[in-house]
């Protein structure tokens, strides 16, 4: 096995375990938070952690699909993870629109450029995977 497939396999295995660990730790933190702050904090905590939890879930499914060799599923799962992260960043950043405070609006627009990078990056990632897998499929058809 050459270096690149080895690096990719290791990264994907690590990613799969990390996603599982993250989801477990997130659940534990949610229970810990509930015991400290009470049930009234549940909706706020769920809303805050839902985008990252969904992103981890989709990334876990993508890594598992990659291990199983199911290439067609991977770009879709990565794109879904990107949409989840983007929704988690864009919705809170649009809230100042309601208040229409120009200073808040400018600061949230600036923050949005930085914070939307992971979500937009994952969408571009999915597009690159689609292009790459198309090339691999073309080779299979040619053979």
């Amino acid at each position: 096995m050459t270096l690149t497939p080895l690096l990719r396999t290791r990264a994907l295995t690590c990613l799969e375990r990390l996603c599982q660990l993250g989801l477990l730790l997130g659940t534990a933190a949610l229970i810990y938070g509930l015991t400290r702050r009470g049930w009234s904090a549940l909706p706020q905590m769920l809303l805050g952690s839902l985008p990252a939890a969904l992103a981890l879930l989709f990334l876990w499914r993508a890594a598992r699909a990659s291990r199983q060799g199911n290439l067609s599923v991977i770009p879709r799962e990565v794109a879904l993870a990107g949409v989840a992260l983007l929704a988690g960043q864009v919705v809170p950043a649009l809230l100042p629109l309601v208040t229409a405070d120009p200073l808040l609006l400018a600061s949230s627009a600036g923050l949005l450029v930085f914070s939307s990078l992971p979500g937009v990056g994952l969408l571009a990632f999915a597009a690159v995977l689609n292009v790459t897998f198309q090339v691999l499929r073309d080779e299979e058809l040619t053979v």
């Binding site: 997130g26 949610l30 994952l122």
Partner: peptide
């Protein structure tokens, strides 16, 4: 230890791993 901070931290560790995997696919 709040779930959103914890999960965001895990996501920020997973994204570089994805970059490494992507370089392999490319």
């Amino acid at each position: 230890f709040s779930p959103d901070v914890l999960l965001s931290m895990v996501v920020s560790v997973t994204l570089p791993l994805l970059l490494m995997a992507l370089s392999g696919w490319l």
